[in-house]
Each structure stands twice: as C-alpha cells, then as structure tokens.
C-alpha cells in the first residue's frame, strides 16, 4: 500500500510542476497562473518529490527505497500525463 501512497504523491508532484508551466495552466487550473503562484507550485512539486524519496528511504532503506522511488516517479508521471490529457479534451486543440 505504501506504493499507492507514494505514486499518488509523485503524481501530485508532477501535477504541481505542470501547473507551474504556462502551457498546461489553462488545462489544469482553467486560467493563467501569476508567476509567484507558479513558483510556489514549482517548489511544492520538487518538495513532494523529495518527500516521496524520504518516505521510501525511511520505510525500505536508502538503497531499495531509491530504486522503488524511481519506479514510482515514472508511474506518477504517467498518471499526471493521463490526467492532463483528459483535462485538455482530446484529440486536438
């Protein structure tokens, strides 16, 4: 179950990072985000990624934790991309 939590955290991290990028803001937030807010989202995204690593490092140890963390980041990123795609309303825009 720790995987589900960590993947959710990684997904949230990537959504934060996406929200800090101009081209995804309309899809995610519905409007342009002012720069201070965007910077906050960027910081939050990286903090979430760090928290995700710390979580795995504490539970599984730094070696195994890092391996698992990389796999979870990939899955989290996939979910984030799927979400952004769903929000942007495919196929063309």
């Amino acid at each position: 179950m720790i995987h589900a939590l960590a993947i959710a955290l990684a997904c949230a991290a990537f959504l934060m990072l996406a929200a800090s990028m101009k081209r995804h803001q309309r899809d995610l937030v519905g409007r342009a985000v002012p720069e201070p807010r965007a910077r906050l989202a960027r910081i939050a995204g990286w903090v979430f990624i760090a928290v995700c690593w710390s979580l795995e490092a504490v539970v599984l140890g730094p070696a195994l934790g890092t391996i698992v963390w990389i796999g979870e980041l990939s899955m989290g990123a996939w979910l984030a991309i799927a979400f952004i795609n769903w929000r942007s309303g495919r196929p063309t825009r």
């Binding site: 991309i81 495919r90 196929p91």
Partner: peptide
C-alpha cells in the same frame, strides 16, 4: 522539460514523436 507532459493524440507524426519522447523521458532512469 518543456515537453515533459506533452502527449498529443491524433496529430500524425507529432503524436508519434510525442509518444516516443514521453515513453523515453518518463522512464529515462530505467
């Protein structure tokens, strides 16, 4: 980084490039 989340469907060559890039970048460490 700019194209990290870009996966556009139904755009021919652009979509294939997106798919190739995204699958490569998302699991690049792997």
């Amino acid at each position: 980084f700019a194209d990290f989340f870009m996966l556009r469907f139904g755009k021919g060559q652009r979509s294939w490039l997106d798919a190739h890039n995204v699958t490569a970048v998302i699991a690049l460490p792997f």
